[in-house]
Design a protein around this nucleic acid. Sequence first.
DNA 1: TGACAATGAGACAAGAAGTGTCTTAGCGTC
DNA 2: GACGCTAAGACACTTCTTGTCTCATTGTCA
Lengths: 193, 193
Amino acid sequence: MNLDPAELRVLDAAKSCCERWGLAKVTIEDIAHAAGVSRATLYRMFPGGKDVLFEALRVRELEDFFTRLSAHLDGAGDFEDLLVRCVMHATHELRSDQHLSLMLASEPGDTLGQLTVDGLPRIIRVATVFLAPLVDGYLPRREGARLVELLSRLVISYFLAPSEHVDLGEPDSARTFIQTFVLPAFQPSLTRS
Amino acid sequence: MNLDPAELRVLDAAKSCCERWGLAKVTIEDIAHAAGVSRATLYRMFPGGKDVLFEALRVRELEDFFTRLSAHLDGAGDFEDLLVRCVMHATHELRSDQHLSLMLASEPGDTLGQLTVDGLPRIIRVATVFLAPLVDGYLPRREGARLVELLSRLVISYFLAPSEHVDLGEPDSARTFIQTFVLPAFQPSLTRS
DNA sequence: TGACAATGAGACAAGAAGTGTCTTAGCGTC
DNA sequence: GACGCTAAGACACTTCTTGTCTCATTGTCA
């Protein structure tokens, strides 16, 4: 996707500047300086400036997230196991994401928007692209998309506001949850167990 | 000195804003908001704005520093012991100062200026005010001032650029250093050991 | 060597943000 | 009810930031 190493440097710089000062305080100049490129070059790479740059950063972060997640799902045995691993590792990723927690602390409004209102459709879209192949063997394409969307919403919700009854980071709790609230809805559509 | 609790709140807010964003990124508005006062009140407390406020913050930090340092020097036995404790605890304070290390990382230029060029005379002045009483019993006032100045310069220099040969944070090293390079210069003026 | 693309440096205008001062209205205290 | 203190916000002013430009420099190919 992004082959240019200079572009990767700029995205890394944007990320670290963001962690250091928060989205609101970072300037294009800060990022250009941190990346060791001139402001002109940065505008050449990301025509449109700050918005486009941070949009690209969010896309990359999201794809990295699901790349790591997919890697964790490779050895899943059956459908249930796949879903349990999925929500567990997604939850763990979210909880251990340094960048995310910094952003949530310094710019709660914008960050929450990216996880719930504005950004959620894209999250679901990317999640579908990455996870659909994995559920393809078990569900028809359309049902798979519905499932991925449901899981995305649930994982994010339980991450943002932990529950007393459910901990999607715990194997037993995650399994019970999947068995109780998720599988029954998709049982009729299952093409194999 | 600063009796008004609101002023202390503002200084604390300025400090924490500074740690979070760095001196360059902080606005008066940030500080006022963090302190829970209006911008108008802040200007009333510190007429002159940002410069005066941060000047006041530096003065307070400096006085706190030497207040803590003085507390560590109370039980000193003799003159040599006093000086050894002094450089040791000053070195420890500097090394463990979270705020200082953040400032050194984010604004090396300004921070170094405050420790060396612009700020050093004040540091020496405050150091003299706080430490002169402690060396008064051993040296004439004028010699005491010379000593405090010398020690201030040395502690800061060894803090900023650690030496291979001397570690003023280590008891033995500090003692040897004091015995070798400091005491001889003031031996002739000693009014008692 | 001479085109070529990519870059850094910096000028520039437009807009946004921050600053410092001021007025006004609200609050509790005496 | 006068007093002092404050939050809120209007204000003109300055500084910073942005996005676009041009131009000189660099390294790469032919």
